[in-house]
Simulated assay, not measured.
Amino acid sequence: MKKHCENNNARTESQQSICAWAEETFGPVTDPKALWDRAMLEMHELGDAIDQRDLSEIGKEAADVMILLYRLMDQFGLELGAQCDAKMAINRSRNWQSKGDGTGSHI
């Protein structure tokens, strides 16, 4: 399986453009937990796509999750990219124990 963890900042969409589209399409969020519920549904669909090794569906379902996370963060005045940057600064300062499956825990 190919890895694609390269720096590619040439995206057309942003958290702002996605949230504007979503609000225009679905209306304002009345309960942020509904976004979380929907993201969990999309995570299950992503899991199914991974089980089937369907690259097209994996990409689409992962994007659905990201879109919902953008919108959820927006409800709290947060920017997802900035939150990832801040969390990575914390992660890089920690010591980690690999679980041998591509995941791990900080120690």
Rank of each mutant, 00 (worst) to 15 (best):
K2L: 12
H4C: 10
C5H: 13
C5P: 00
C5A: 11
E6N: 10
N9Y: 14
R11I: 13
R11V: 14
T12I: 14
E13P: 00
E13Y: 05
E13S: 12
S14V: 07
Q15N: 10
Q16W: 01
I18H: 04
C19P: 01
C19S: 13
W21P: 00
A22G: 04
E23S: 05
E24R: 13
T30A: 07
T30L: 06
T30N: 09
T30G: 05
T30Q: 07
D31S: 08
A34I: 01
A34E: 05
A34L: 06
L35M: 03
L35I: 11
W36A: 13
L41M: 08
M43A: 15
L46E: 09
A49T: 06
A49C: 04
I50V: 15
Q52A: 15
Q52M: 12
Q52D: 15
D54I: 05
L55V: 06
K60A: 15
K60H: 07
K60F: 04
E61R: 13
E61G: 07
A62E: 01
A62R: 05
D64G: 06
Y70V: 00
R71D: 01
R71P: 00
L72P: 00
M73T: 05
G77Q: 10
L80Q: 08
C84I: 15
C84L: 14
A86K: 14
A86D: 12
K87G: 07
M88N: 15
A89Q: 11
R92I: 04
R92G: 02
S93W: 01
R94K: 15
W96L: 02
W96P: 00
S98G: 06
K99T: 08
K99M: 07
G100V: 08
D101M: 09
G104T: 08
S105G: 01
S105I: 10
H106R: 05
